[in-house]
Write a protein that binds this DNA or RNA. Structure first.
Lengths: 249, 249
DNA sequence: TATCATTGTGTTACGACTACACAATTAACC
DNA sequence: GGTTAATTGTGTAGTCGTAACACAATGATA
């Protein structure tokens, strides 16, 4: 769709007042990363987002938005909060281009935004900007700049939710590649929790859940002793999820 | 506001496409109760709900709705999920009265509904119906009838969320009267978790958090040994909340 | 005054988590 | 080729928290 058509006909295609913002989280270089977009005109950064087509559910809309930005079909997607403060789009005018989106355009409406976060495998993603942006990059969560509207608050809430969920959801399957080492898994948890963990106890705890399978193969190429590779045992993973896990971090 | 005015002018006053549904939870007779409303015309039951005024935040709107139904100013209120399946209002027409809300009325729009749950002290509530309903009652959560739209699903999700939160939030302060006995507190937890707990271990665990204060007074009138009364120590309660609790049920 | 359901309390056993050390491996360096 | 440095793999002892459990005291009721 063209930008002009989008601005002109958006209000016919999408539900008014409702938007979706996505916090797309990846893990790389021992750090959590989020996908950010750079606004075309003023260079400000924002979270990937979009709108809800008149016949789409929220989940479907979020899935579409994520697919457009990442190229991924299947990803772990969780709605986490809906943001509806009338002041959340403070200084909105400064982000809308008068020629393209003149006052009176549906883009000037007040929006309630449904927040989703997605956990993705970093290497599988090919970031793609949308109609309103010309760059799409991963950004270390410690280096996130000022974002438009209340997007910093949305990001914070997403990460807070992710940390809470860490106790009952094994994020490794979604954030790590199919085969990974125990130290990699540990770094992931240490990064999210922002605290160091004991190697041996971590391994014992993880293996105790019985959702990991150790392969005979080891990961070579590193500068030190080659660690074993692991992968998630899908069946046991699903089963354990249904029964409810208690990580207790 | 009159019903007619509400139907005629609602779309000017409220954000379109957006509603709020509330799961108001109380505790009485050793059971969890929810507040339900009975539709005027067809006698169907539903959750209390409402709409968002153009200048109100979601939280403010939810607070207003809850105040109108319960008479309470301050209550514990949590947004828990937003429901946006286009099929969620299946058979909607059957709940709208053609004479009052003719086709074309804003009430026929598709609505995205933001779900809130509230924990209230049962005895403080004076249930009040709204414009569209003529009854407002507490209902035991085990006896909830078929509700309109997807309200049963909304209720289930709220209770699921409540159960999850039980591990990091002490619900007693909101659901019990100011002064209560340890057995009463235990019944509350047993009811929510739907599992029996050991008296002694429960007491030890609760007291270990240091957020309860035992009064010298005992509760008399029961047919047996008079149990001590307790109350929450507000300061320690707030402090513990900020630090994060781990109940571990 | 006896009864009965319920409350208040402490100890022990078990299991989970924490802290901790040494041998093996691998690439890199000389 | 031998040495070095960083990292991985593994087990045990101590501590803490949790779970299981029994008996004396109370207070209304009969």
């Amino acid at each position: 769709m063209e930008l002009n058509e989008f601005v002109k006909k958006g209000h016919e295609l999408y539900l008014r007042h409702i938007s979706i913002d996505c916090v797309i989280v990846g893990f790389h270089d021992e750090q959590l990363k989020v996908l950010l977009l750079k606004w075309k005109e003023n260079g400000q950064w924002c979270l990937p987002g979009g709108f809800v087509r008149k016949d789409d559910s929220l989940d479907v809309a979020a899935t579409r938005i994520l697919r457009e930005r990442t190229g991924l079909q299947d990803l772990y997607l969780q709605q986490f909060h809906t943001f509806g403060d009338p002041a959340r789009e403070r200084n909105k005018e400064q982000f809308l281009w008068p020629r393209t989106m003149p006052p009176g355009s549906w883009m000037h409406d007040r929006f309630i935004s449904v927040g989703y976060y997605a956990l993705v495998e970093f290497s599988q993603v090919t970031p793609q900007p949308d109609l309103l942006t010309d760059e799409c990059h991963w950004c270390d969560i410690h280096d996130v700049p000022d974002l438009i509207y209340d997007h910093n608050a949305i990001l914070d809430k997403a990460l807070e939710t992710l940390r809470m969920r860490l106790n009952d959801y094994p994020v490794g399957l979604n954030l790590l590649p199919a085969r990974f080492t125990m130290p990699e898994l540990q770094r992931l948890y240490e990064t999210i929790l922002d605290t160091p963990l004991d190697r041996r106890n971590f391994q014992k705890k993880m293996l105790a859940f019985g959702i990991l399978e150790r392969l005979t193969e080891r990961k070579t190429g590193g500068a030190h002793k080659a660690p074993y590779l692991y992968r998630f045992d899908r069946k046991k993973y699903e089963k354990a999820l249904k029964q409810g896990l208690k990580f207790g971090f």
